[in-house]
Amino acid sequence: MKFSALRHEVRLENEDGTTSDEIKRRTYDLKCSVQERMIQVTIPADVSVKDYPYNVEVELINPVADTVANANFRGTMVDWYIKADDIVLKNKGDQAGNTQNHAPQGQPKK
């Protein structure tokens, strides 16, 4: 799979129904050659934001693909979703651009 971009962030709701500043989860677009299309993968908000270069190869940590079924007047509509614990660079030693793990020279890692 290849990294494309952050698609959206889902925020928690406050008790009064308004949107809070706290992020619940993030969804990223990844190009999947097996599916021959873009797929969306959701990871928890406590994982750092992924800002990888476009088209860099990535892999999913503990991916889960599942469905959600919603009944309507025509029957049932089924949607697929994919979630994972994290999205990491594939073969980290071969690719540059991992801004989360590589600090500029002379600066400590965060």
Rank of each mutant, 00 (worst) to 15 (best):
A45Q: 10
F73K: 00
D85A: 14
V56W: 03
N55I: 08
V41Q: 03
M77E: 02
V68N: 12
N91T: 13
K50S: 00
Y52Q: 03
V64A: 12
K50G: 01
D86H: 07
M77R: 01
N91R: 09
V88C: 04
Q95S: 12
N72W: 03
M38I: 10
A84Y: 00
V78P: 01
K83C: 04
V64I: 15
Q95N: 15
V56P: 00
G97F: 10
P53W: 08
S48W: 11
D85I: 13
D86V: 02
V56H: 05
K50Y: 11
A69R: 04
A69E: 14
P44D: 11
I61A: 12
N72K: 05
G93A: 15
L60P: 10
V47N: 07
I61K: 14
I61V: 15
V56C: 04
N62V: 09
V88G: 03
A69C: 11
G75C: 01
D51E: 10
V49F: 11
E59G: 09
R37H: 05
N72D: 13
D85M: 09
V68E: 09
K90M: 05
D79A: 06
Y54V: 05
R74I: 02
A84D: 00
Y52F: 15
I43C: 01
D94F: 03
A84L: 07
A65H: 08
M38P: 04
A45N: 09
